[in-house]
């Protein structure tokens, strides 16, 4: 059975349909990439799945349970973790405390286990040396790392990553890929919105293409990237 199933999801802002009848399933432990031009409704889809936005119609089913009417914090506790495209750190808390909140609430980690648990994630995300720094003072790159680390601290069964590879150097991107592969290897299902295709293709086994809120195509990465329709809308190449 799918760990996450989205069925007939639609959302409009006024006359603009930002998500239009999107349906897909994610198998346990599967990694799927989501691509599409700017404004295709990728982040909106994440907000609908995480519960930050209410859909006009459609359902979200997590591990066989309908969570469409659950709040964002309930869904987090049930196992949906997310990062934000524009980082949303808790500015006045330290980097370590940012993770501690996530671990103690969404992750239900005990008080005794939480410190070691959080430091371990910080080390993997390359933030351990900044643990005591205030999150509000971090530069953009480390804010993105914190987004990933904080989402991991909620102990998600499905983690949704929203453009975390943009702006990284090749070496940093390589580190990020190995971090995400390690998450994947532990059995966490991944939904990943990304414009950096080589990073995406190093991890995911399927790609979904969104355009004007509609699902254009789903399939193996090389098949999807070879499809004329995708090349036209995504790469701007005439078929």
């Amino acid at each position: 059975m799918a760990i996450l199933a989205v069925q007939g999801m639609s959302k409009s802002f006024g006359a603009l349909k930002v998500t239009d009848d999107v349906s897909f399933e994610l198998a346990p432990g599967e990694a799927m990439g989501i691509i599409g031009p700017n404004g295709a409704g990728k982040s909106t889809l994440f907000n609908l799945i995480s519960g930050n936005l209410r859909p006009d119609s459609g359902r979200v089913v997590l591990d066989g349970r309908d969570v469409t009417y659950e709040s964002a914090m309930q869904r987090c506790s049930s196992g949906i973790g997310r990062s934000f495209q524009i980082p949303q750190p808790f500015d006045h808390l330290s980097v370590y405390e940012n993770l501690l909140v996530a671990a103690r609430f969404g992750g239900s980690v005990s008080a005794a286990e939480a410190p070691g648990f959080c430091m371990d994630i910080l080390e993997r995300a390359g933030l351990a040396h900044l643990a005591t720094h205030k999150a509000g003072a971090l530069p953009l790159l480390n804010r993105k790392r914190l987004e990933l680390a904080r989402a991991l601290a909620t102990r998600p069964r499905v983690i949704m990553l929203d453009e975390i590879a943009g702006g990284l150097t090749d070496a940093e991107c390589g580190e990020l890929i190995s971090t995400i592969r390690a998450i994947h290897a532990q059995g966490t299902a991944i939904l990943w919105i990304e414009h950096v295709l080589h990073a995406l293709n190093a991890v995911v086994s399927r790609l979904m293409v969104l355009n004007f809120g509609r699902m254009l195509m789903v399939g193996k990465p090389d098949e999807v990237m070879a499809a004329p329709a995708v090349r036209e809308i995504y790469l701007g190449i005439e078929a």
Binding site: Q88, E97, V101, F105, G106, T154
Partner: peptide, 16 residues
Amino acid sequence: QAVRDNPVAARSVGVD
């Protein structure tokens, strides 16, 4: 304190 800093993100890490 997480809610005070960012209510949207707080919800997304399981805080009510």
